[in-house]
C-alpha cells in the first residue's frame, strides 16, 4: 500500500461534557489505529475530547441533496409534534 492508497477517515469526537460523538473533521491514514492516533494529535490538542471514533469515509452512506424536499419537507407542517402546539392554561404551571 503506497501513500496514495491511504484511505480517508472521518473523525468523531465525544467532548468532555459527555455529549454524542460529533464530526470533527477528516484525515488520511493507512489503518484505523493510526487514524485514531493522528486524530488525537490533530483534533484533541486542547482537551476537546474524551473519546474518538474513526470510520473510513467510504463506509458512510448519505442522503443526496436531490432528496432533500422529499425526505425532510413532510416534517414541516407537523407543528403538533412540538410542545408549544398545545394550549395549557398558565395556572397549571410549568409542564
Amino acid at each position: 500500500m503506497s501513500r496514495k492508497d491511504w484511505p480517508l477517515w472521518e473523525v468523531f469526537i465525544r467532548s468532555r461534557s459527555g455529549l454524542h460523538h460529533k464530526h470533527a473533521g477528516s484525515l488520511h491514514a493507512p489503518d484505523a489505529e493510526m487514524a485514531i492516533s493522528n486524530a488525537r494529535d490533530v483534533y484533541t490538542r486542547r482537551n476537546e475530547g474524551v473519546s474518538i471514533w474513526v470510520v473510513e469515509s467510504r463506509h458512510i452512506h448519505a442522503t443526496t441533496p436531490g432528496e432533500k424536499e422529499e425526505l425532510f419537507d413532510p416534517a414541516e407542517d407537523k407543528a403538533y409534534r412540538h410542545p408549544t402546539f398545545y394550549d395549557i392554561p398558565d395556572e397549571v404551571g410549568h409542564m
Binding site: 500500500m1 503506497s2 501513500r3 492508497d5 491511504w6 491514514a29 493507512p30 489503518d31 489505529e33 493510526m34
Partner: peptide, 13 residues
C-alpha cells in the same frame, strides 16, 4: 515514515 506506516498497516492486516 510514510513507507513504514504503510508496511506496518499491511502487515497487521
Amino acid at each position: 515514515v510514510r513507507e513504514a506506516a504503510s508496511a506496518y498497516a499491511a502487515k497487521k492486516a
